[in-house]
Amino acid sequence: MNYVITSGWWCSNENTQDRTELIGDDAIRNQDFHRVWHQCIRETNSKANIYIVDSASPVKPLLNEGEKIISFEKNFGHSTRCDYKLSGVTRAHIMGMTLALLNEYEYWVYIEQDALIQGEQFIERCISSMNSPMAFGDGQGTPYPAQQSFMIIKTSYIETFLHRLLKIKASDKDIAPELKFCIASSKILSLIPEFIYKFIDRRGALNKAVRIIIYGAIKLLRGFDYIPFGHGRSRPIDFSHPHFYFQHGSAPELDIFLSQKNHSNETK
Rank of each mutant, 00 (worst) to 15 (best):
N2F: 05
W10C: 03
N15S: 13
G24Y: 04
G24V: 06
A27L: 11
I28C: 08
I28L: 08
N30L: 04
D32F: 00
W37N: 01
I41E: 00
I41L: 13
I41W: 00
R42P: 03
T44W: 04
N45A: 12
N45L: 12
S46M: 08
Y51S: 09
Y51V: 09
V59Y: 01
L62E: 11
L63R: 04
E67F: 04
I69E: 12
I69G: 02
F72C: 09
E73N: 15
H78V: 07
S79W: 13
K85Q: 15
G88A: 13
V89W: 07
T90V: 12
R91W: 06
H93V: 03
L99P: 01
A100C: 14
L101W: 07
L102F: 09
E106V: 03
Y107D: 06
Y110Q: 08
L116P: 00
Q118A: 04
Q121S: 11
F122L: 05
E124Q: 15
R125T: 00
S128L: 10
S128V: 04
G137A: 11
Q140H: 10
T142W: 07
P145G: 05
M151D: 00
M151K: 01
I153M: 08
E159F: 04
E159M: 07
F161A: 01
L162A: 00
L165H: 02
K167D: 03
K169C: 09
A170F: 08
D172N: 15
K173N: 14
P177L: 11
P177N: 14
L179Y: 05
K180H: 12
K180R: 13
C182A: 12
I188L: 11
L189T: 05
P193T: 09
P193Q: 07
E194M: 08
I196L: 10
Y197N: 02
R202Y: 06
R202E: 07
R203E: 15
L206T: 12
V210E: 03
V210T: 10
I213W: 01
I213A: 09
I214Q: 00
Y215M: 03
G216F: 01
I218F: 02
L220G: 00
G223E: 07
F229K: 01
G232W: 00
R233K: 15
S234D: 08
S234H: 11
H241A: 15
P242R: 00
P242G: 01
F246Q: 06
Q247H: 13
Q247T: 11
P252F: 04
L254N: 12
D255E: 12
S259I: 03
K268V: 14
K268M: 10
